[in-house]
Design a protein around this nucleic acid. Structure first.
Length: 776
RNA sequence: GCCGCGGUGGCGGAAUGGUAUACGCGACGGUCUCAAACACCGUUGUUCGCAAGGACUUGAGGGUUCGAGUCCCUCCCGCGGCACCA
């Protein structure tokens, strides 16, 4: 029976709004459960169906938790700083904050229309000065601890637009807006020393429960390698003519290798163009050919240098080094397949053992020798090497030359250098500006605001200038889970007591696209705060799970340009929030990408209509068969929600309703249990029917149903009877029946008897409740 | 190239080494209707057979096992991540 979802859902959403059954308690005798979903970036396009996929599924988890007696914290907020808003502001001349407010209003309305059980009283917004005051405060903690430092890095520069571009704005080496090829420019940027935490970020993965693929990606991203640094002496040409000078003039090239055991086969040394440049800067008289190669290599983008299938290039440096293991003289080359920023920027090439070295040796006719391996430690010791660990992870570039981000709360004084803005002056609020474009020299538009820039040095009171760079939008999202715990606190980012009550997060769900950066940054950020004694746990997330993308019906990515985007508003309008929530969990395994199907959605809506129909058929005597189905349903839904297998949980709900329908009627007790297990998925209709069946309580406050384990076990099961491993018939037996009880009827089964006729049974395999196999 | 995950009906997908194809969609047949939609009932892996029943079937090919979608080996294809990190 089709129901009026609009009226019904509105009624319950209003009721929930009024009664607030989802408010988390900061003090409670109940066990706590902190469930986190990645807060959305409130884009102008509104909610995508991908958002409800994660939010509905975790909503099902927390609804079950509440019914199990947990004090649940399930918060939501807005990660609202970012480029799309800023670009939209530039285009329309409107204020980013205004745009953000409109977008968050839309998102809030859309999320509420889905009946998600967020504790709305804890909403946070990263662009709210009361929020970013603490983002700035935490940055200053990094600064004071010496973990935030300024360094020269390369930024993406669009020569036509004359602005620095964020990595996200560079598409295949070109400016996203005008298509001009992006250049590299040197710029001083604030950096945060995340690499100091590299080991702990890897090692502590053992202490948390992440999906294996997530832990693996974190580990790979950090990229730890154990190896050794070994000096290769540079043969000083002068030493041949004047041996006395030899010891005084010794020069070395230091290489990093993870395979010191192969050193006997090292037939040449390769240094990166970056290292070659450094050598030239300190006086190396390189040939013109070398200079030309280094110049061109340094100009090119790294992406270009490391492009797929690229032929190896390089040039003979014209100098020799000594392999410290066997004292053989080897050539030194400069080649861009050796990276300047990793290891020592120089390698020993062992073409026999390394494919890249092999390729280079083949290309330039360098020697390849096959020598036996030496024990790792022995090799390192013999050549006087030093065991070292290197990481792929690089320090976090924390500056953006942009408007719509948290101002970095530092001032520069001629006398005192970089000085922290005192805590009493936080937050450093983003001032209004006329134009949101970056300036011609690539600085943030804040650099144009004299009143903002010119200030006093907090140390000496003398004239000083504010930093005009802003933070990346990873900043606000690195600690938002802490603010949910105590969102109104204006003395601290959150009280120690409340943090102790809620942390760590019991379950954190998000997309795989945030597995490396956001997850790593926020773990690092939390660890730093932990070291400062500001948060109670070293790891913020006890368990991390991820969801797959919702694809378009044709299996491709949904995109505005293709016009295949599903708008949640329209679905809610036409089929209802319960149908959308339930369908989106039913469509496939939670972790996998799944294509959208409007027909599938309609099927789920039909299921909800059937539930409505059954509510009219309550009555009849006890029905053991139905009681068994109900018991199995309660068990399966419970198990599946824990395992995040929402699709099979919903399949079981359907099986259960089909059984009720076949029975023609259902007792009020069984139906009540059914409504409780339906509730996490379709809370509106479950609540409505709960009320309709005469209950006055909210389902939210009811307890999760239990079942009689005896009902899970059937008295009679269908046993498969196989002859030589092939199914030849079935018989009805008790699941616990002994083999001696089962064998005679199995042999007697008409078709089985036929197959056994004239055969010698060599062996009988019996699995109670499953099958019996006569091996012939 | 390396790492990870996957390949099951017409489609989305189920399946602790034990009756493959649950559940849903679609399709077909029927009931209701003047008719259609909705709803409900039935059928639906392929194939041989009137039927009883048989043969085949989880990307391909081998293997282990009484028994393999599931475990092992070789290969093909798709998706995701990393990509000259020494």
């Amino acid at each position: 029976m089709a129901y009026n979802h609009k009226q019904l859902e509105k009624k319950w959403q209003e009721k929930w709004e009024k009664e607030e059954p989802w408010k988390a308690e900061d003090q409670s005798t109940k066990p706590k459960f902190y469930c986190l979903v990645e807060f959305p970036y409130p884009s102008g396009a509104g909610l995508h169906v991908g958002h409800p996929r994660s939010y509905s599924a975790l909503d099902a988890v927390v609804r079950k938790r509440r019914m199990e007696g947990f004090n649940v914290l399930y918060p939501i907020g807005w990660d609202a700083f970012g480029l799309p808003t800023e670009n939209y502001a530039i285009k329309t001349g409107r204020k980013p904050q205004e745009i953000t407010n409109e977008n968050t209003d839309t998102f809030r309305r859309q999320l509420k229309a889905l009946g998600l059980s967020f504790d709305w009283s804890r909403e946070v917004n990263t662009t709210d000065p009361a929020y970013y005051k603490w983002t700035q405060w935490m940055f200053l903690e990094f600064f004071k601890a010496g973990l935030a430092y300024k360094a020269k890095t390369m930024i993406n520069w669009c020569p036509k637009d004359k602005i620095g571009l964020a990595n996200e704005e560079v598409v295949q080496g070109c400016c996203e807006r005008c298509g001009t090829t992006v250049e590299k420019r040197e710029k001083e940027q604030w950096m945060i020393a995340i690499t100091k935490y590299a080991d702990r970020l890897i090692d502590d993965l053992k202490t948390v429960n992440y999906l294996p693929k997530i832990a693996k990606q974190q580990e790979d991203w950090i990229g730890r390698s154990e190896g050794a640094e070994i000096n290769f002496e540079i043969r000083n040409p002068k030493s041949e003519t004047n041996p006395k000078e030899e010891s005084a003039k010794k020069h070395f090239v230091k290489v990093f290798t993870t395979r010191p055991d192969t050193i006997d086969g090292a037939t040449f040394v390769v240094i990166s163009p970056e290292l070659a440049k450094t050598w030239m800067d300190i006086g190396w008289q390189a040939s013109d050919e070398v200079r030309a190669y280094v110049d061109s290599a340094l100009k090119r983008e790294e992406a270009d240098r490391t492009a797929e299938g690229k032929e190896k290039t390089g040039v003979d440096a014209g100098i020799k080094a000594i392999n410290p293991f066997n004292q053989e003289e080897v050539a030194v080359w400069v080649a861009d397949y050796v990276l300047g920023h990793y290891g020592t920027g120089a390698i020993m090439a062992v073409p026999q053992h390394d494919e890249r070295d092999r390729e280079f040796a083949d290309a330039f006719g360098l020697p390849i020798v096959d020598r036996p391996l030496i024990a790792f430690d022995e090799a390192v010791a013999k050549v006087g090497g030093v065991k070292t660990t290197k990481y792929k992870l690089r320090d976090w570039v924390f500056s953006r030359q942009r408007y719509w981000g948290e101002p970095i709360p530092l001032v520069h004084c001629e006398e005192h250098g970089w000085v922290a803005v005192p805590e009493s002056e936080l937050p450093v609020v983003l001032p209004p500006v006329e134009k949101y474009e970056p300036t011609d020299n690539g600085e943030s538009p804040l650099a144009e605001i004299a009143e903002f820039v010119n200030t006093q040095c907090p140390t000496c009171g003398g004239p000083a200038k504010r930093e005009t760079d802003t933070m990346p939008n990873w900043a606000g999202s690195s600690w938002y889970f802490l603010r949910y715990i105590d969102p109104q606190n204006d003395q601290q980012f959150a009280s120690a007591e409340k943090l102790k009550h809620w942390m760590p997060i019991d379950l954190y769900n998000g997309g795989m696209e945030h597995t490396t950066l956001h997850l790593l940054y926020s773990r690092f950020w939390n660890k730093f705060l932990f070291d400062k004694g500001l948060v109670p746990t070293s790891e913020p997330y006890a368990r991390r799970h991820s969801h797959g993308l919702v694809m378009a019906e044709d299996g491709t990515k949904m995109s505005k340009s293709k016009g295949n985007v599903i708008n949640p508003d329209e679905i809610v309008e036409q089929y209802g929030a319960d149908a959308l929530r339930t369908y989106i969990m039913f469509m496939g395994p939670f972790e996998e990408p799944v294509p959208w199907s409007t027909n599938g959605l309609i099927g789920v809506r039909r299921f909800l209509d059937k539930v409505m129909t059954m509510s009219e058929k309550i009555g009849g005597g006890p029905n053991v068969e139905l009681a068994r189905v109900m018991a199995k349903t309660i068990k399966k839904i419970g198990d599946d929600i824990e395992a995040m297998k929402f699709n099979t949980a919903i399949a079981q709900l359907m099986i259960c309703v089909n059984a009720m329908q076949d029975a023609g009627a259902v007792s009020s007790e069984l139906f009540a249990s059914f409504l409780k297990v339906l509730f996490p998925f379709a809370p509106h209709i479950a609540s409505e029917l709960w009320e309709k069946t005469g209950y006055t309580t909210l389902l939210d406050t009811e307890s999760w149903p239990t079942y009689d384990p005896a009902l899970i076990v059937d008295d009679v099961v269908t046993l498969a009877v196989q002859v030589a491993g092939k199914l030849r018939g079935t018989i009805q037996v008790a699941p616990t029946a002994e083999q001696t009880e089962v064998e005679p009827p199995a042999r007697a089964e008409e078709n089985v008897a036929k197959w056994l006729e004239g055969q010698e049974v060599k062996k009988v395999v019996y699995v109670p409740g499953r099958m019996i196999n006569f091996v012939i």
